[in-house]
Write a protein that binds this DNA or RNA. Structure first.
Length: 217
DNA sequence: AGCGGAACTC
DNA sequence: GAGTTCCGCT
């Protein structure tokens, strides 16, 4: 009625554009919780932003594998607020939700680095596909993951946008509600098993709290 | 900035 | 279960 975010039907598939050198496991994306849904998980949304180049000024991969930094906390919070139709979202609240993932071991904080978190992809995978046979799975070949991604669906853009002071036109010139930004591209992204360290080594090892101390900040 | 408890919603 | 909102503490 008031905020019906369910127009995730006619969204085109997105090209598997990825940051060079950063092979991200696309299968981490849950097909069910695609672009339109307000039931999207936060970590999922984060992934969605990270996937798109236009948000690299806002949030981007940085540092170790699975590590990302929120460059513009307010903006990320705003985008999250739009997606969830929560006009009063802010980074304070968002970070609380992020903290929720600590216990779930989906995320953890990179200590010493501001606004920097790290994914536990091993956990992410287990959460989504508990019985997934990595070696031979259709997910690797035929994954139709996201589309217009960050596009706010039917939260009535006009309504939402009126609630949010900042305009998307500023800086990067990325319209939040523009669905035509992603051109259809080659889907032949052959994912390689050896790009996922945790499958063999398992990077989930964090003994008892003693972690790496960063050089910055 | 970052943390976690607690009450609350969906 | 997955946040959201509010809070006090470091």
């Amino acid at each position: 009625m008031d905020c019906n975010c369910v127009s995730d039907l006619l969204l085109p598939p997105v090209p598997a554009l990825w940051t060079p050198g950063f092979a991200f496991p696309d299968w981490a994306y849950k097909p069910e919780s695609s672009p339109g849904s307000r039931q999207i998980q936060l970590w999922h949304f984060i992934l969605e932003l990270l996937q798109k180049e236009e948000y690299q000024g806002v949030i981007a991969w940085q540092g170790d594998y699975g590590e990302f930094v929120i460059k513009d906390p307010d903006e990320v919070a705003r985008l999250w607020g739009i997606r969830k139709c929560k006009p009063h979202m802010n980074y304070d609240k968002l970070s609380r939700a992020l903290r929720y993932y600590y216990n779930k071991r989906i995320l953890h904080k990179t200590k010493g680095k501001r606004f920097t978190y790290k994914f536990n992809f091993s956990k992410v995978v287990l959460v989504n596909y508990p019985l997934l046979d990595m070696a031979n799975t259709p997910f690797f070949l035929a994954q139709n993951h996201f589309s217009g991604g960050t596009t706010a669906p039917d939260c009535t853009p006009e309504t939402i946008q009126s609630l949010f002071p900042r305009l998307p036109e500023s800086g990067r010139g990325t319209s939040l509600f523009d669905r035509g930004t992603t051109a259809p591209g080659p889907e032949g992204d052959k994912l390689r098993l050896d790009t996922f360290p945790f499958l063999s080594s398992g990077e989930l090892t964090r003994g008892g709290g003693g972690e790496q101390t960063s050089t910055s900040n």
